[in-house]
């Protein structure tokens, strides 16, 4: 086992590399979450539309994503699509993560949209608002607010899942940790260090989500 002083020495001496890697992890996470929300919202709306084919497409997407491991999806995107269309590695990784997160986010949003009282839609419609206007102005703001706790959870999962981008040679946190570890014959120290960085990121993300929740729950007080 490494000693405490050795751990802290290594932690500080490697901070430059790790902070760069942390920023890449954060970028991957933020891009994949934002794109994932867009994809998730789209497929949630397809699912609740009254058009059978669209709902079926949404079901198929969720089934495929939930039914296959993320690492397989990343490899398929990386070796397949990114070679065909010359997609930069960062985007191959981000889109694979977004595609993956999108399925879970779509299920979260579908659930919360459907949990909003049917009367809210009727109230909007009875005021002359169209279906899409009522959805946008009345239903979705309430659904998003209700979705925030499970979404926050999904964001944290997404952050940690981004470590799988290491396998397509992204120099994010996990890749840097394993590389430095094996170069210095000191895997355990670097794994412990990378755990600290993940904890910092998760703590940061949790604070951001909590702030959002607080801001959006203003109508409850």
């Amino acid at each position: 086992m490494p000693s405490f002083s050795h751990f802290f020495d290594t932690l500080f001496s490697s901070s430059d590399v790790f902070i760069r890697a942390m920023l890449l992890t954060l970028e991957l996470t933020v891009v994949s979450i934002i794109v994932g929300i867009v994809i998730g919202l789209l497929f949630a709306l397809l699912k609740i539309s009254n058009i059978k084919v669209l709902a079926w497409i949404s079901d198929a997407y969720v089934f495929l994503v939930r039914g296959t491991p993320l690492i397989v999806q990343i490899f398929i995107l990386y070796f397949g699509i990114s070679n065909l269309f010359l997609l930069p590695d960062f985007w191959a990784a981000s889109l694979a993560l977004a595609f993956h997160n999108g399925a879970y986010i779509s299920e979260i949003l579908r659930g919360t949209i459907q949990s909003i009282d049917k009367g809210q839609m009727e109230a909007g419609r009875s005021l002359g608002m169209s279906n899409s206007l009522t959805l946008r102005r009345i239903i979705l703001p309430q659904a998003f607010r209700r979705a925030l706790p499970p979404l926050g959870n999904q964001f944290i999962i997404g952050l940690k899942d981004s470590s799988l981008a290491a396998f397509i040679s992204m120099n994010e946190l996990f890749n840097v940790a394993t590389t430095l570890g094996s170069n210095n014959f000191d895997e355990m120290t670097y794994l412990l260090i990378v755990a600290v960085y993940y904890l910092i990121l998760v703590a940061f993300l949790t604070i951001v989500v909590n702030l959002f929740e607080k801001k959006l729950s203003i109508s409850d007080r």
Binding site: D117, G124, Q142, R145, S219
Partner: peptide
């Protein structure tokens, strides 16, 4: 409506 259905987020 019987149950008002005010928009709670506004």
């Amino acid at each position: 409506f019987q149950h008002f259905y005010l928009f709670p987020h506004m």
